[in-house]
Nucleic acid binder design. Structure first.
Lengths: 336, 336
DNA sequence: AGAGGCGTGCAAAACGTTTTGCAAGAACAA
DNA sequence: TTGTTCTTGCAAAACGTTTTGCACGCCTCT
């Protein structure tokens, strides 16, 4: 009692396999009566077309890969877990509605990706000269990056608007009263850091502010940030605002501030980029930006599909929105 | 300039496709010299066997599904995000080392899973009469559950040892000085809650403690927990210890305690089950249990593979380990 | 009646592997 | 010599679809 094939069904229905195929795919007209008979019979016999055969015939795998640009253990670790998972969940759902499956691509030093094959791959926040991009490009697999690819404007990407995001936060900090704002980004060369740094430089110049910036290993976590932020703050006691690009580094910075006896937000205002669990669980809560990652992921899937169809349609990323919280609230106005 | 097929390679190497196949699969001996020539030529021509064809021929999809037992939007939401992602990351990596891909199975009211096909599926903490289990069972797809399946001892599963976990926490709270411990679990009927409740009942009886237990919607998040925990605490002022099974509910409870002017841990000791970001970011930090989810995920993948091979090997889950933190520390001893 | 068009259906050729049974030659033993 | 076994290789048959070109019958215009 094997799984019934299209041929079994054809025999049972007294038609040819061709007709069955058309009845399901709708690629050609089949008589409504015939079709109804076919689907009823299919249901009864438990027939479902073999994905494997369809894939072989069509040359499509029906699968999209989601690759994080850093070792998966780290990406799944506390630091970037939320970021990646938000994207994964939304992308998986969008993919499913397009009859595609979403596959996780773990990266680890000794992993061999040759056994995977995808119709396209989404790469999350690649770094400059990202190995994953090189790998998939060499195999001619369509790529869409979430966040622009540094130095590779030719690679399709969903813009995270990191420059605008930075501007949003800096303007807000300034409005809230900060006059000397510092910047902490990651030392990895991701587009978001680079854009942020560029905007920061401009902003500092505009406001006649001394740029005080620092790069930390984004995987260093809270302990690294705590130590380094403390030294930055003692070295530059005039700092009364801080933009920290990575949430884990931001909460680490928060601890440093508290250790130094500096109050947030009255002495120093603090803001971060990604509005994840960390920003919300921090006390005081962190001002952050809603990047609309669900929309981003959706757009990335659409972009992959478009690319598979040969269209090189550009998909715009959603506009980031600032979420102002306790950590940067203006002390002059409101509040009693 | 198409992708070279096994036939192209065979022609170029002057052998038959059979030999190529054997050279790669190792299913039969081929002369070392011939093999070397083949692999060199393959490399040069950029030949790689078509996954689709292999799958069709072998009947295996090379893919394992990972399904969360609740709508994906929720599972990926703050509450269970960490739990699921930890498993996903580890499972994806393990799967890859076994030449399998890991696919996310999003669940949403209107999603149609029929376009997916897997060699097996891992289901995370299913509820009683879980729809996903019924779905995959009907399609004869091997299932491994993470956490036992309520009322279905016949379904293969990796034991999360929820009873032991509960015992660990309750014993600790008692040792730390709590004499009237309350319990908050989820109202969904997952095995972990059921085991916890059973162990709690036994524990209460052993210690002559009045059982004070409550079930909350696990998706209610912190706000729900805050409200309900507050009412529980005012109703039972004698409570000096709380075991809250879900981390989001635990942090909500923490807020309730603070609102009520109860100090943690001196007035009430608090502990939760899953040691995720939430437990660690909470202030004071939450006592929790390391469930070794990476090992659990690894075991789940192994179990799926074993089941595919017909072995019904039972895979033991790792032993949970308590991680004692500030929220439940004994006040009598040590510490200054 | 003939020409054109439409609706419906079929046969057969892919798609690129793996597997099975067979064969030719070499090595080896009796 | 004859038989046995081992090694290496091949041809051909699957695996279950989708697509293409063709054909038949029926309708509708001229």
């Amino acid at each position: 009692m094997r799984k019934p094939t299209i041929i079994d069904l054809a025999k049972a229905a007294g038609v040819s396999p061709t007709t069955i195929s058309h009845a399901f795919s709708g690629r050609r007209k089949v008589d409504p009566g015939t079709r109804d008979r076919i689907v009823a019979l299919a249901e009864e016999m438990g027939y479902r077309p073999s994905k494997a055969a369809q894939r072989l015939r069509s040359g499509r795998t029906g699968t999209i890969g989601l690759a994080s640009s850093m070792p998966f253990a780290v990406a799944a670790g506390p630091s970037r877990l939320g970021f990646l998972m938000e994207i994964a969940a939304s992308a998986a759902l969008t993919a499913l509605t397009r009859d595609m499956a979403l596959c996780l691509v773990p990266t680890s030093p000794d992993s061999n990706l040759d056994n995977l094959d995808f119709d396209g791959v989404i790469i999350v926040e690649p770094v400059r000269d990202e190995a994953l991009i090189q790998y998939f490009e060499a195999r001619h697999i369509p790529i869409v990056s979430i966040g622009k690819v540094p130095a590779r404007p030719d690679v399709a990407s969903i813009d995270l608007h990191s420059g605008r995001t930075a501007r949003l936060l800096l303007d807000h900090l300034h409005e809230a009263g900060s006059r000397q704002i510092g910047l902490i980004t990651g030392e990895q060369r991701r587009n978001s850091y680079e854009e942020t740094e560029a905007v920061y430089a401009t902003f500092a110049a505009e406001h006649g502010m001394t740029p005080i910036a620092m790069r930390l290993d984004e995987n260093g976590g809270e302990t690294l940030a705590e130590r380094e932020a403390a030294s930055l703050l003692t070295q530059h006691p005039q700092l009364d605002g801080l933009l920290v690009s990575v949430d884990a580094l931001a909460t680490g910075t928060m601890t440093a501030l508290q250790r130094l006896g500096l109050a947030v937000p009255s002495d120093v205002r603090l803001a971060t980029r990604y509005d994840g669990m960390r920003a919300q669980l921090s006390r005081p809560q962190l001002t952050a930006v809603d990047l609309h990652l669900d929309d981003v992921a959706r757009a990335a899937v659409e972009a992959i599909l478009a690319q598979m169809d040969g269209e090189d349609r550009v998909v715009a990323g959603p506009t980031p929105e600032i979420i102002i919280r306790e950590s940067s609230r203006s002390q002059t106005g409101g509040g009693f």
